[in-house]
Design a protein around this nucleic acid. Sequence first.
DNA 1: AAAATAGTGTCTGTTAGACATTATTAG
DNA 2: CTAATAATGTCTAACAGACACTATTTT
Lengths: 211, 211
Amino acid sequence: MPNQVIVTVDVVLLTLKEMRLQVALMKRPQEPFKDALALPGGYVHPEEDADAASAAYRVLREKAQLRPPYLEQLGTFSGGRRDPRGWSISVCHLALVTPEAATDSQWFPADKLPRLAFDHAKLIAAAVTRVRNKSSYSALPGYLLPELFTLSELQAIYSQILGEPLEKSSFRRKLRDLDFLEEVPGAFQGGKQRPAQLYRLKGMALFDRTI
Amino acid sequence: MPNQVIVTVDVVLLTLKEMRLQVALMKRPQEPFKDALALPGGYVHPEEDADAASAAYRVLREKAQLRPPYLEQLGTFSGGRRDPRGWSISVCHLALVTPEAATDSQWFPADKLPRLAFDHAKLIAAAVTRVRNKSSYSALPGYLLPELFTLSELQAIYSQILGEPLEKSSFRRKLRDLDFLEEVPGAFQGGKQRPAQLYRLKGMALFDRTI
DNA sequence: AAAATAGTGTCTGTTAGACATTATTAG
DNA sequence: CTAATAATGTCTAACAGACACTATTTT
């Protein structure tokens, strides 16, 4: 006897545009919350999806035409009051993409959102908090940039996400210690004056399944 | 049209006995995995449970006769292969109790487990990892001890969980910085020689809903 | 007094932040 | 040359680990 529960996945898809975290939102084509903005998400398809992460990945493919280089489970939101149709459970995921990949979606600054469907404002807040926390000790912000980037660009991103200015010298020391960047030999980016060495993230798992 | 998904909660209930992390396991009374050991868990009851955390809390009340002082969401495990009955999703929780509260349960050392039902070995591994990680910067291990404890006892727990010896002086400095303990005035525990000051955790939320 | 554990103080090597200096390009 | 940004070097204050010392109890 199956219990009547609505089982969905949602994805907080983030990128960085104009130096601000932006989240992908879509107008809902049907009730409930018809025409309201919502996170990309949908029902789990038991025949199709190996697990919830695969469902999230499929949703992004279908609804945003992209395959994010980073996707992790954020947490699960559940209860009888979040969806007017009944008791529901949503496995929420966090995905990051580079700004170029993100052509098909509509983007909104994560710190100044319109009214959203369901409890999606809460999910986004949780995602932003997660990104902030993980950024202080991980390569996460690297997934928000184009594949190749300079250390100055990367520092600007970290500084923006953490909300504080960073010292160049100690920032670079930390990057060397954490050791998740690799120099791209012969690749430079010469904006205005002295060209800067380009770097990329070292090869990492496409899906981070850490819990 | 509801999708046929089995929606459950499971709880990795941990305590500390004989200086080892121990997990509560129960023999399954029915198929699937009849008579195998499993985590306390069960179906979500949409009429009864406000959300998944409440369901986990109810399961602990019903199956282990206890109300844990600490409970948080660990993560969600899902897929078509973890339960022979079909595509299933389990919101797994981590709960900590003091050893005295844990009379009704059967305890097993978390690092040497028998064969378990479902993917519960994986859930336990995730819980232990979470406890290890959080312990380095939080009050978490305090929930594994009796309400009142000495700093030496607390240090022994941390040392055990983190798997490394700790310096007394710097350990106490850190406790003071993190500031989650309070002295219990006039309470001492005089094992063999000089009695030690007793401490307790400062009042904190019963449920940690951080994600 | 000796033994045992609790609790505090001091020293020192490491490190993160502040800042200065050098390097390399365009104009 | 100067201007501008990249990249590295140096200095210092704060801190964590190591260890010593003091304090309080039982026997």
